[in-house]
């Protein structure tokens, strides 16, 4: 470990109480029920929005608590945020193509 002398953050993982895992699990199950319920209501385009928002919340809970991001170093948090940022680049720049394809009209169209 002599190479890590300047980095003295704890290398031992965080130990969370079992009750917290159960609570998070209950919240996840509740959101699953809400997802199923929301799918039965006709909200037009908002059906997909609701489903995605719930999925995002559930994913965030898993990453924060089950994957211990909440107890991790700032560097680990930056890493996770950066990967989500690059996912947005993938989606965002791809959508510049899909959303603007119809803008230019061609003769006959």
């Amino acid at each position: 470990m002599e190479n890590n002398q300047q980095h003295d953050e704890s290398v031992v993982g965080h130990i969370a109480p079992a009750s917290m895992y159960v609570a998070i699990w209950a919240v996840l199950m509740a959101f699953t029920a809400i997802t199923v319920f929301a799918a039965t209501i006709e909200l037009h385009v908002f059906n997909i929005v609701v489903a995605l928002v719930i999925a995002t919340i559930k994913g965030t809970l898993v990453v924060l608590f089950f994957m211990h991001l909440r107890y991790s170093t700032k560097l680990t948090m930056v890493t996770v945020v950066a990967s989500i940022f690059f996912l947005f680049i993938l989606f965002g720049l791809t959508m510049t193509d899909y959303l603007s394809r119809g803008w230019l009209t061609y003769p006959g169209h």
């Binding site: 720049l93 510049t96 193509d97 959303l99 603007s100 394809r101 803008w103 230019l104």
Partner: peptide, 9 residues
């Protein structure tokens, strides 16, 4: 691809 996207890229 869209010409507008092409401009951006």
């Amino acid at each position: 691809i869209s010409v507008y996207a092409a401009l951006v890229f």
